[in-house]
Amino acid sequence: MSKNNTYILAIESSCDDTAAAVLHNDKTLANVVAGQAVHEQYGGVVPELASRAHQQNIVPVVHEALRKANVKKEALNAVAFTSGPGLMGSLLVGTSFAKSLAMGLDIPLIDVNHMQAHILAHFIEEEGYDKPEFPFLAMTISGGHTQIVRVDSYFEMTVIGQTLDDAVGEAFDKSAKILGLPYPGGPLIDKYAQLGNPKAYKFTKPKVGELDFSFSGLKTAVLYFYQKEIAADPEFVDKNLNDICASIQYTIINILMDKLKKAVKQTGIKHVAIGGGVSANSGIRKALKEAEQKYGWKTFVPKFEYTTDNAAMIGIVGYLKYLEENLAETGYTDTQVMAQSRLKI
């Protein structure tokens, strides 16, 4: 696929971040994200509140993305949006806005799979960033998903391992909640873990299929551990917070890396990329770099702004689909496309 002169407006609204981006071909001109602080008091995302906040945020976020990119809406060639997976109410806000804008401008509408976008974010043009070559393995780790995917081309992907229950991001956040840390707690566990002893406390690893994951048992183990220690010493967490966080993080990283090593061994593919919000975790990034040196892998870690939910990753998929489906020539668009909360790769 050769480059052309294409401007894509991308919209992401799968969970609690309202995001819009403008891409010129495969390069990001603007990537704007509006978070939703309303969920902090509930210790997690409340779907109804999320969809209401999206309705408030989407117009100013899109306006700001166009302003920062210095691109007028009349110059756009297509609108890309997240069609799933995600929270249905949140997805509907982005879907409805994208459809209306594309129809109003009479330009193609491109639906994007959120999970594919986390993987293809590696193909956003960034100075000094190496892009993976096909085939490669992608481990997508976030608050809602944990998958290992074999990627043979832009749109030929096969899930070879996935969580059977909870996602790794939820394991981080729920463990943090048990310890009394505010939401979102995953980044705080990472912060305190860097000051603690990762082998201070031992948590068992789940016994599941070779490439599959399970984190529900770990959450239960952390809860029982907390209850036992607090009963003996009410100040136990305050006295040992760094070591507890380091031990939880160490266990989670070992689970992820063990599965990834097995996937590399089974497929023979040594090019490994990570994506999703949890890939911002410093311990995971360090473990991946150590594996690169120890096992001869070539690893790909995205910029921080492309790890959490963002619209630039939706835009790069939109651009690649725009070229592959030759939308510049056909102008074809399916305005009947529906949001799908459980969309799969």
Rank of each mutant, 00 (worst) to 15 (best):
C245P: 04
G196T: 11
G276Y: 00
D166E: 09
V59Y: 12
I107S: 06
S153P: 06
T335A: 13
K191V: 07
K72E: 11
K270E: 10
E325Y: 11
T163E: 01
Y322G: 02
V149W: 00
R342F: 02
N240Y: 13
L101M: 15
I253L: 11
M157E: 11
P184W: 08
G89V: 02
G180P: 08
E235D: 15
S83C: 11
G86Y: 04
K202A: 07
N57K: 15
E74I: 11
V222C: 08
K294H: 12
T18V: 14
I8Q: 00
M115I: 06
G43E: 08
M313S: 00
I124S: 08
A232T: 14
T6R: 02
F134P: 08
G44L: 03
T18P: 09
Q336E: 14
L288H: 04
T299A: 12
G89I: 03
K228G: 04
R150A: 09
T28H: 04
S51G: 03
N326V: 01
A65W: 00
K131E: 11
D111A: 00
L87V: 09
D173K: 07
H271L: 06
G275D: 04
G196W: 10
V59D: 10
K228R: 13
K265R: 14
M115G: 00
G217S: 08
G144I: 01
I107A: 02
E210Y: 14
I284H: 02
I119A: 04
G331V: 08
G44R: 04
Q336S: 15
K261Q: 02
D165W: 10
K344G: 04
K191L: 08
F304H: 07
P135I: 13
T335H: 09
F213E: 01
A287D: 07
N113S: 13
P132L: 12
L343N: 00
A30P: 02
T267N: 02
V301T: 11
C15Y: 08
S13H: 04
N281F: 02
I124T: 01
A311E: 01
K239M: 14
A221L: 13
L92M: 15
V237P: 09
I11A: 12
L92G: 07
L91H: 05
Q249A: 07
K73R: 12
V278C: 01
K259V: 03
V59G: 05
I284A: 06
Q336M: 10
V93L: 10
Y154F: 15
L137K: 11
I189N: 06
M103G: 13
N113R: 06
Y295H: 14
A78I: 05
F236K: 15
S142F: 00
C245D: 11
K131C: 01
E305V: 00
S216E: 13
W297S: 09
V79Q: 06
T95I: 02
K207E: 10
Y7V: 12
I189E: 01
K207I: 11
F97M: 09
K239N: 15
K289V: 12
Q194N: 14
P198F: 08
A138N: 06
A102T: 04
Q340F: 04
V79C: 12
E12T: 00
I178Q: 14
V33E: 09
E74N: 14
L66Q: 09
